[in-house]
């Protein structure tokens, strides 16, 4: 790899720009493919370019070209997308283990809580903290399809506005802590606020996979497991 190409790749990643590095495994030549531009030492046919961009959108690295045909160029597409994000509403006890578990899983984590005594650097070392109201905070954070959102406050004043925004966003996962009874009441309130049945059906509640979790760390594991299952296997999880 050329040092200047590596520099461009790192610059794109630093600015959150999706980019695919395409390597011709036969010649070693490499090209960067952006959503709207390409840069590098070889060009791609239109069909290949479309396949590379589709793989970039799906975040699916791999070989393209006719792999059986010896003469066909073997191209490796390495998709580099901005990190997955987990936005946690509620700097509560469960958020404390959930934040580092999510970081280890590869997510950039932001904890949102307008209550100053909860969202402190002491309780959440190294985690991005936002002390705005959840609906405003979520609007500012530009939710995309690589974002997961979990509300943990138990407090309708904080959770409900967050869910109104989250369930109408492109987030791939939205979960909310609370018992079945809490959830039933929440569905009533959110329906009155104007959410449709389809929008509410996106909500994972009670949050997390049923692994019999009891402690905050165990609940955090069940939440992270569910987010992982939805990402890897689709929404049935």
């Amino acid at each position: 790899m050329k040092t200047d190409l590596l520099g461009r790749l790192l610059a794109a990643k630093a600015s959150g720009t999706p980019v695919a590095l395409v390597t011709d495994l036969t010649s070693g030549l490499q090209t960067l493919v952006f959503e709207d531009a390409i840069h590098g030492s070889f060009g791609l046919e239109e069909e290949q370019l479309a396949e590379v961009r589709e793989r970039l959108r799906q975040d699916r690295s791999g070989l393209i070209g006719d792999l059986e045909d010896e003469d066909s160029p073997r191209l490796f597409v390495h998709a580099h997308n901005p990190p997955l994000r987990l936005l946690i509403v509620g700097a509560v006890h469960i958020a404390q283990p959930l934040a580092p578990i999510a970081v280890l899983t590869g997510y950039a984590v932001t904890v949102i809580d307008p209550r100053g005594s909860f969202a402190t650097a002491e309780r959440f070392p190294g985690v991005a903290l936002v002390d705005a109201w959840p609906d405003e905070a979520l609007a500012d954070l530009k939710i995309d399809s690589r974002t997961a959102i979990v509300t943990l406050t138990h407090d309708p004043k904080l959770d409900d506005p967050a869910l109104m925004t989250a369930l109408r966003s492109p987030a791939f996962y939205v979960g909310s802590l609370g018992s079945k009874r809490t959830h039933a009441k929440r569905v009533e309130r959110l329906t009155q606020e104007g959410l449709t049945g389809d929008e509410l059906a996106r909500l994972h509640a009670p949050v997390g996979l049923d692994i019999g979790a009891v402690t905050p760390a165990e609940i955090a594991i069940s939440v992270m497991a569910q987010i992982t299952a939805v990402r890897r296997k689709g929404r049935t999880a």
């Binding site: 790899m1 040092t3 590596l6 520099g7 790749l9 790192l10 990643k13 495994l25 791999g62 070989l63 490796f76 390495h78």
Partner: peptide, 21 residues
């Protein structure tokens, strides 16, 4: 990749290995 770039900037020789399939 950042580590690779930083080693390179220090004048060291660097190689990258990638799982392709």
């Amino acid at each position: 990749l950042q580590q690779a770039a930083s080693w390179r900037a220090d004048g060291r020789k660097v190689a990258i290995a990638t799982v392709v399939s």
